[in-house]
Computed example of a mutant assay.
Amino acid sequence: METLQIVLLALIQGFTEFLPISSSAHLILAPYVFGYADQGLAFDLAVHLGTLLAVVLYFRHEVIAMLHDWFASVAPGGKATPNSRLGWAIILATIPVMVVGVLIKDLVEHQLRAPQVIAATTILIGLLLWWADYQSKRNRRIGSMNFKDALFIGVAQAVALIPGTSRSGITMAAALMLGYTREAASRFSFLLSIPTILASVIWVGKDLVTTENAVNWGDLGLGILLSFIAAYTTIHFFLRFIERIGMAPFAIYRLLLGATILGFLYL
């Protein structure tokens, strides 16, 4: 890969992973727009690892507290706390995407990486996100998360295996439908990304480590670093401004992107 291609794709992944506009769609479409060969899943995996490191570092205090309380709650005589319940909610919400991911792995890697699929999901989820934000009461905090809510959001996350859907977009939309604030919906989506991205990194990474094909680890390392920086910056500013700006700008962007893709395909 050319250095410019690495920089471009890593920044695209870092800036779009936690915005509700679908990082996978942008990574798949980039080669079409800029004339590069498809970067393949190995590089996609590397830049996802960068975003994983960013979200873990940003939420390190919450993650440590949640892990501490969760392990304490399952120990003999342990008691549930808000942090341990949040940990259980994240575990439950992660199960659907892991099950569905194993079942349709080949379908996602090959048939669903088509521009037509991305255009359709980009538009449909954009409309869903806009509607969810508009109708939501937005009066629930993340501490009120229960197992029923977590399962609903987890099932929604499984749909995001279809490129163009946006994992963050559909989980935020699901949380908004349940009445959570924009900040709570975003925070839960970001925390939920940790086991989800980690599972995908392990699942695809085992094939990368054992492959006999040549792997340019320098290119992958640069991709990890740049996506980490971009993702950390995005998380910080998104959480600061999301209550003020709402989801409408992202929904509009999705509609324009989907329409542009369809225009290139059929006009």
Score class of each variant (00 low, 15 high):
65 A>Y: 04
127 L>W: 02
195 P>Q: 13
106 D>C: 00
31 P>A: 07
50 G>M: 14
134 Y>V: 08
228 F>K: 12
255 L>N: 06
250 F>W: 06
259 A>R: 04
145 M>S: 03
107 L>N: 01
165 T>I: 12
138 R>T: 14
221 G>V: 13
186 S>V: 01
145 M>R: 06
94 T>E: 09
136 S>K: 11
87 G>R: 05
64 I>H: 08
78 G>V: 05
121 T>H: 02
125 I>A: 02
83 N>K: 14
90 I>W: 05
39 Q>G: 15
96 P>W: 00
190 F>I: 10
221 G>C: 10
122 T>D: 01
254 R>F: 00
52 L>Q: 07
222 L>K: 08
89 A>Y: 03
75 A>G: 04
221 G>R: 08
34 F>W: 05
113 R>D: 08
238 F>L: 15
188 F>E: 01
39 Q>T: 12
58 Y>T: 12
145 M>K: 06
102 V>D: 02
55 V>I: 13
111 Q>Y: 13
84 S>H: 02
190 F>M: 09
178 L>I: 12
221 G>K: 11
109 E>C: 00
55 V>E: 06
28 I>E: 10
168 S>W: 04
22 S>F: 00
225 L>I: 15
2 E>G: 03
112 L>E: 08
70 W>R: 10
93 A>H: 06
199 A>C: 12
251 A>P: 08
85 R>H: 09
219 D>I: 10
159 V>K: 08
27 L>Q: 07
138 R>A: 14
69 D>E: 00
154 G>H: 09
171 T>N: 11
98 M>G: 12
169 G>S: 02
67 L>V: 11
221 G>N: 09
145 M>C: 12
162 I>Q: 04
194 I>S: 10
116 Q>N: 06
14 G>R: 03
243 E>D: 15
65 A>E: 14
160 A>C: 07
114 A>Y: 09
249 P>L: 11
169 G>M: 01
179 G>Y: 08
1 M>W: 13
208 L>D: 05
153 I>D: 07
29 L>F: 06
124 L>I: 12
165 T>R: 03
218 G>K: 13
83 N>E: 15
166 S>L: 02
